[in-house]
């Protein structure tokens, strides 16, 4: 009897290991959101991309840690010297203006989505393009936000900086070289009263909503919003200050 108990205990433990392994594996593959294709070259390429992406994520994490360390080192080094403290503050201010630091503050969130009105295909006048959000719409909204005094803007987590490009890329839109799709969530930090002017009567947003029937919304957030930093590099090779 004890022998049988022993066997069942060991078998039970093995089953735990086995099914836990299977479940973790299924979740790992499921989380990536890809299925195994029938083409082996395709699988290899996908595998290579996923591994590279993971490597990139790890390296980026390490970089962020190193930056935090650098920041603390700098603060420690400049603690007892008022001149250096001023320089340190200058660097911080400059980074903030360049969009190289994460910022938090009061602001608004504009959400743009494709039209939910069904396409009436019978008439010649109905063009499917009229029912979608285009990059021009995003540029116009960002322009209005900037005009209303936005200090920091991001689209779907991509920070808008001085050299950001918003570009049409087929069915998606490229911001800072990263592909983003609907819904476009544009967050802007600034004085809420002036930013609310973006939502004014007969403004661009109003037109999008009422004339073109696009699914847009405007929200004045109660909680402070956080806008991530710009993750690309800013390089000046030709422009030199006098």
């Amino acid at each position: 009897m004890t022998d049988k108990k022993m066997i069942s205990l060991i078998l039970g433990c093995m089953c735990i290991l086995l099914s836990a392994g299977i479940a973790i594996q299924v979740r790992t593959i499921g989380g990536i959101g890809t299925s195994t294709g029938s083409n082996s070259t395709e699988n290899q390429l996908r595998d290579a991309i996923l591994k590279t992406k993971e490597n990139y994520d790890n390296l980026y994490e390490a970089l962020e840690k190193a930056e935090v360390k650098l920041e603390t080192e700098r603060t420690n080094a400049t603690q007892n010297n008022s001149e250096l403290t001023d320089l340190e503050n200058n660097i911080k201010e400059a980074n903030k203006q360049l969009g190289l630091t994460e910022v938090t503050g009061e602001g608004v969130i504009v959400t743009l989505n494709d039209s939910t009105v069904p396409l009436t295909g019978s008439t010649i006048l109905s063009d499917p393009n009229d029912y979608l959000i285009h990059y021009e719409d995003i540029i116009s909204i960002i322009n209005e936000l900037k005009n209303a005094g936005a200090e920091a803007i991001s689209i779907n987590g991509q920070r808008i900086v001085a050299n950001s490009v918003i570009k049409c890329d087929g069915t998606v839109i490229k911001v800072n070289g990263q592909k983003i799709g609907t819904p476009f969530v544009i967050s802007a930090i600034g004085m809420q009263e002036t930013l609310a002017q973006v939502n004014r009567y007969y403004g661009y947003l109003w037109k999008m909503k009422n004339e073109w029937n696009l699914d847009v919304s405007f929200e004045r957030t109660k909680n402070p919003i956080t806008i991530p930093k710009y993750t690309g590099t800013i390089k000046f090779n030709y422009a030199q200050s006098q």
């Binding site: 069942s8 205990l9 078998l11 039970g12 433990c13 093995m14 089953c15 735990i16 290991l17 086995l18 099914s19 836990a20 392994g21 299977i22 479940a23 973790i24 594996q25 299924v26 979740r27 790992t28 593959i29 989380g31 990536i32 996923l50 591994k51 993971e54 490597n55």
Partner: peptide
């Protein structure tokens, strides 16, 4: 024991953290 083990293992697996793709 086998059925119980499978069920417990599945529950552990569902709640365990996902491993990196490189090691999958």
């Amino acid at each position: 024991a086998i059925i119980l083990g499978c069920v417990i293992g599945a529950v552990i697996g569902i709640n365990a953290p996902v491993i990196p793709y490189t090691y999958s």
